[in-house]
Write a protein that binds this DNA or RNA. Structure first.
Lengths: 302, 302
DNA sequence: TCATATTGATTACTTTTTCTTATGAACATC
DNA sequence: GATGTTCATAAGAAAAAGTAATCAATATGA
């Protein structure tokens, strides 16, 4: 017998549920149908993919290797189908965009309305996650386009920069540093920084700066979002770094905090797109770059 | 309807023959069966893959793009099946090796017998082509492993070096240069070099050396193989560069030519393996590296 | 402990898909 | 204009994949 796409789909489904009935349900077929196809696939490959004793199902080692290949094949097929779609009508259909939390609130509100206006047939589906999860979802064909800070390793993805986003120093009103017009490295020595939770790439950026300037992190506190961070600084609990795009447009922030530029050699993150090399729409992404630049948020440097 | 593997296979077949009847034949089905599946595939994708006026069939632009994707998917599937095979029994089944002509005669005769002895279940299939064709065949899943000079761009392939192969100068017996013990760059100025035909990567290597040393190529002659080249030098028609592995083991050559080492900074090619990233057997290839090194030809530098 | 529920495999039968055979329409060639 | 191509189409046979019902083996809980 020959391996079929359907068998690969059933294989994927079963590997996710590890339960024949549930997997069958998720594929909208009955359990015997799925059992049969899994057996046929195992026969075709000549190796067992699952160990099943009459109560548990689990993926074998070799099954795991085969699963990765199967998953890649299905992704490639899906990309092929979606590219064909986009041939018929570019900028239509579903576009799943993933954005990191320290970028999303400052870019999406301005750009998305323009996108919807320019491409009414494009159904945008927006997802906010941290970098690791974004990359994982991208590689598993759950997202089409990422918007993130490019200063990280993007294993197996293509990327292109959109704009630079310099970091600024934020202190409480009346903080000793706030009298200065520009902050130098030595000004930060032994200052206490409030930072984001683990997993935010901006935390890593900020930590690098702190280490470089011999500053300290406030112990026992990690903010879950930039707004928490801003509130904590405003309440006088410490100082922090904020991305330009997060502060440049917000009069409220400028009243409750002091925002100070750093020296010439300003620490900066590069914001950009990333996508799977086999994506459909790589053409369209290059067009989107222009639009995202046209509607760049205040504070971003082209 | 859903796209099937079989549809992709028929698509590939038709793209090769551009004739429904022949394509059907090559797939061991009747022409209407293939016609139908091609139609279904076009319906699924929503775009025409072939233009057919009642006498000619040709691939559309979009069809070409889809073809590349289809071909990659089929290769991925074939790799998956073959990896499953190799799980059952490593070093068994067909291994298709491609080698460039300036390497094949000096490596294969020594290594292949050992391979056959070590892995009696491995069916070696050896193919001699120039670099460009090897890469093309590799990318089209017609070869599993390449042995070539790594000093070239290997688009989309993985590679690993085996050994270095320095070039030596070959002159006719009694040639003025043959009195020297070592050849320097300046010795080669205005010397007349015999070189290989276009397409041999060794020609490009040698040309670089010639340009660097301001030497000249003999006009109106291009050798089709190293043995022609050697014969032409022996006949006094000029001098040339030869790879160490081609001369170190051959007493006949040493009688009919003068073989002279070049200066310390010896021009050298690196001989190595290359394979598709998705290949089955990448494990086995790393084992083969050891064996190829164990039976390295005289003249090769590990 | 025994009734009950849940697991994946198996069987018999139905539906769907894919194939073959036979044929038709459009175009070249002689 | 007869003949031999081409690809498309239609009808029915063969193959594949599905459902429904059931089984055997294992857990769970009164």
């Amino acid at each position: 017998m020959n391996i079929s796409i359907r068998q690969l789909e059933y294989f994927l489904a079963l590997s996710q549920t590890l339960n024949f009935r549930e997997a069958a349900e998720s594929c909208f077929v009955t359990q015997p149908a799925l059992s049969k196809q899994i057996q046929l696939l195992e026969d075709s490959l000549g190796i067992p993919l699952f160990e099943r004793d009459k109560k548990h199902v689990l993926l074998t080692d070799k099954g795991q290797v085969m699963l990765n290949r199967a998953s890649n094949i299905l992704t490639a097929l899906s990309d092929m189908e979606r590219e064909a779609q986009s041939f018929k009508k570019p900028f239509s259909g579903k576009l799943r965009i993933g954005v990191i939390p320290t970028i999303a609130p400052y870019i999406l509100p301005t750009v998305v309305p323009h996108l919807s206006r320019l491409y009414p047939d494009l159904q945008l589906s927006l997802h906010e996650h941290r970098t690791d999860q974004l990359i994982h979802k991208m590689l598993h064909n759950q997202l089409d386009l990422l918007i993130l800070a490019l200063n990280v390793e993007l294993e197996g993805l293509c990327s292109t920069p959109l704009y630079d986003d310099p970091f600024l120093l934020a202190t409480p009103i009346g903080h000793p540093l706030s009298s200065k017009t520009v902050i130098h490295k030595k000004d930060l020595k032994n200052q206490e920084f409030l930072l984001l939770e683990d997993g935010h790439c901006m935390r890593d950026h900020a930590l690098e700066v702190c280490e470089f300037a011999q500053a300290k992190e406030v112990p026992d506190f990690r903010a879950s979002s930039l707004s928490t961070l801003i509130a904590m600084v405003a309440a006088g609990n410490g100082i922090t770094l904020l991305p330009s795009i997060a502060v440049s447009d917000d009069p409220h922030i400028k009243k409750s905090l002091e925002i100070l530029p750093l020296t010439k050699n300003t620490p900066t993150r590069t914001i950009g797109f990333a996508w799977r090399p086999t994506t459909h729409r790589s053409e369209e992404f290059h067009q989107l770059v222009k639009i995202f630049r046209d509607y760049a948020p205040p504070g971003a440097k082209l």
